[in-house]
């Protein structure tokens, strides 16, 4: 059996879980096994997983789903893993999936490979390809051990519906040790967020070192105001300089964006930034340096000083949309 950890929110299965199922099905085919799913809550979504090749979905309710206690969820997965005699346990590319799987791996002494794109197996050793440096580098590795633990990266694998059948749904209450609930979310604090969150923005205006200061970022804000659903983002350097808050950081240690359009102004396109922005549909770079890396990564470029180009662009868009 290939056991998958399926996450959900806002009444939908998480996309990264559906992406991961593409990897899980491929692995299950190689060892001639079925794919099963473990879920915490979300029973109403479970049957629909059949569309993505899941044979049986096991839904844990009660404390396991109501609170988030990573170690307890890992224990529940471990119990299922044993019951189903699983060859592999796989989760999607979220911090929570990686956290739960790392607990499982640590407690049960299993090897774990995060950000795995491909697995080839003869039934014992696995040859895998995984991402390093946020996808700027690939690692080819071998993996030993009876049960192997993987997570897939976010936004890399295709979502592939394979059938129209429904998954069998079983509600279970695994007997998890009370001590494993000790670390759990105590409370949730709501934050006041202005504007569209970066990962959801349709248009992102990003600024880097070339923007030059906190006040200069207002030029980018004014450009963003010309679009619906636009938000301003920044590189790590601009955040470190204190020009914008860390919430605006795009990149490996910031947020990942996937807008229809990314306007990259005054930023060179360093690896750590680009891994957060490469999901953009279209990129328009504005840079004084025609040889900057972003000029080779983007689709369109304006060679020039953003302080001159951006206000002009803002006015031109305003005129065009009036």
């Amino acid at each position: 059996m290939v056991l998958t950890l399926i996450e959900h929110g806002d009444g939908e299965i998480a996309e990264t879980s559906l992406e991961m199922l593409t990897l899980a099905r491929d692995l299950a085919d190689q060892v001639d096994e079925d794919v099963s799913a473990a879920m915490f809550g979300g029973e109403e979504l479970a049957a629909g997983l059949g569309e993505y090749g899941v044979d049986t979905a096991y839904v844990c309710g009660g404390d396991l789903s109501e609170s988030y206690a990573p170690e307890a969820r890992a224990d529940a997965l471990g119990i299922l893993m044993d019951d189903l005699d699983s060859a592999a346990v796989i989760g999607g590319g979220t911090d929570t999936a990686n956290e739960v799987l790392a607990h499982l791996s640590a407690k049960r002494d299993l090897a774990m490979a995060a950000n795995t794109l491909e697995v080839d197996t003869d039934g014992e050793t696995c040859e895998i390809t995984r991402q390093r440096w946020g996808g700027s580098l690939l690692e080819h590795a071998t993996m030993e051990g009876e049960t192997k633990v993987f997570s897939a990266p976010d936004h890399e694998l295709p979502i592939e519906p394979v059938g129209d059948g429904e998954a069998a749904v079983e509600t279970i209450t695994p007997d998890v040790d009370e001590a494993s609930f000790e670390v759990a979310i105590d409370r949730v604090e709501e934050a006041d967020i202005e504007g569209v969150p970066l990962p959801e923005a349709r248009i992102v205006i990003g600024g880097g070192r070339g923007v030059g200061g906190e006040e200069d970022f207002e030029q980018l804000e004014e450009l963003a105001d010309q679009f619906d659903g636009a938000t301003v983002g920044a590189t790590r350097i601009a955040v470190d300089e204190g020009w914008v808050s860390h919430d605006a950081q795009i990149g490996q240690t910031g947020q990942k964006i996937a807008p229809d359009l990314y306007i990259a102004a005054g930023l060179s396109g360093a690896v750590q930034h680009w891994v957060g922005a490469k999901g953009s549909e279209n990129v328009l770079a504005i840079n004084t340096d025609p040889e900057a890396a972003i000029m080779y990564k983007g689709d369109y470029a304006i060679v020039g000083d953003l302080h001159e180009v951006v206000p002009e662009l803002t006015d031109a868009i305003e005129a065009a949309t009036d």
């Binding site: 090897a111 774990m112 690939l138 690692e139 030993e144 770079a285 080779y296 060679v303 020039g304 180009v309």
Partner: peptide, 28 residues
């Protein structure tokens, strides 16, 4: 380690030169 790196690879660059729309404010 049961996970053993064998070899690293730089993925094929999808880089292509951006279409230059022009220089300075005239490009808008």
């Amino acid at each position: 380690d049961r996970l053993q790196m064998q070899e690293l690879e730089t993925p094929e660059a999808e880089d292509s030169e951006a279409e230059v729309l022009g220089e300075g404010p005239e490009a808008v």
